[in-house]
Design a protein around this nucleic acid. Structure first.
Length: 277
DNA sequence: AAATCCCTCAACCGCAGTTCG
DNA sequence: ACGAACTGCGGTTGAGGGATT
């Protein structure tokens, strides 16, 4: 099924990149720009003696070498944003990473799989309580509404922030700030040394996966989602009785399904718990 | 100190969609 | 119009290193 991957070509090197290979790659990108993967990567890299396929090169650049990537621990704020965006968008890591321009989709995906998923599961199994009282399996209507309001509020905040972030794209990453960023040690010097030259060459800081990657569809989906959340919030406040179909109509599928599942199981929202605590 | 287990994350794989000659 | 190459994405793997026994 499908054509064979480019990396099947004989003599292609696989596995971890060496600093020397990184240097060759970064030098090439400095000369030709990061968008030129299409034009003869094989020819160029065969000539340079870098036996990596274009796919591997692109991945290495986007996930590791490109300037402006922040490595190291995720902040609480980033963590919360990821949790909410994951609830809203599902496992669309590329879309999620659009709202955290300094993190790669791979990083976010890894962080989700290794940390957040476990954390949320733990919270689900052992839900923390604000007042230390035992958790009722059947929260009262009032409790449920309060939880839903908090959920809606936090989702709205995440959306507003994300939309705001698109409306006011982040300023170019100053070299000083970039230098303060924690990079993986193996490529730290390469990235840093090349960053200045890179920025001079390109006038502005490149953000290959930020605003451009946020499609119009995503943006309008988020805006309509925000509208939906407003309606939902108003509905809950007035104790209006939304039918499942009405909820389905105004909420993104992932949020609706989460809500439905939790409601059917008389369960609190792990997302809410994660935020509260 | 050695063996084993567990976790992290860079890199790979496979697929679908897009672009180009 | 067509096929090959490129691009982007999400899922998965496995080497390396730290923690535990």
């Amino acid at each position: 099924m499908g054509r064979p991957p480019c990396c099947d070509k004989e003599g292609v090197k696989k596995g971890p990149w060496t600093p020397e290979e990184d240097l060759v790659l970064v030098s090439y990108i400095q000369q030709h720009g990061p968008g030129n993967w299409r034009y003869g990567f094989w020819r160029v890299f065969d000539a340079l003696g870098l036996m990596r396929c274009s796919k591997s090169c692109r991945l290495r650049w986007t996930n590791y070498l490109r300037p402006g990537i922040k490595r190291g621990n995720f902040t609480d704020q980033e963590e919360k944003l990821i949790v909410h965006l994951q609830a809203l968008l599902g496992n669309r890591w590329a879309a999620i990473s659009s709202y955290l321009p300094e993190r790669t989709d791979n990083d976010i995906k890894n962080y989700w799989n290794t940390h957040l998923k476990k954390k949320l599961k733990k919270m689900q199994n052992n839900p923390p309580h604000q007042d230390g009282s035992a958790c009722s399996n059947s929260p009262s209507k009032g409790q449920w509404e309060r939880r839903l309001q908090v959920d809606i509020h936090m989702a709205k905040k995440a959306l507003t922030d994300a939309i705001d972030l698109q409306a006011k794209p982040k300023a170019s990453l100053p070299a000083a700030a970039a230098a303060a960023t924690t990079y993986a040690s193996s490529t730290e010097n390469i990235s840093r040394l090349l960053q200045q030259g890179w920025m001079k060459k390109n006038h502005t800081h490149p953000s290959p996966k930020t605003t451009e990657a946020i499609s119009k569809t995503d943006f309008s989906a988020m805006e309509s989602c925000l509208f939906g959340l407003d309606s939902l919030s108003a509905g809950v406040s007035e104790s209006a009785s939304f039918s499942h179909d009405e909820f389905r109509a105004i909420l993104p599928t992932s949020v609706f399904e989460t809500w439905l599942f939790e409601e059917e199981n008389n369960r609190s929202s792990p997302v809410v718990d994660a935020i509260i605590n």
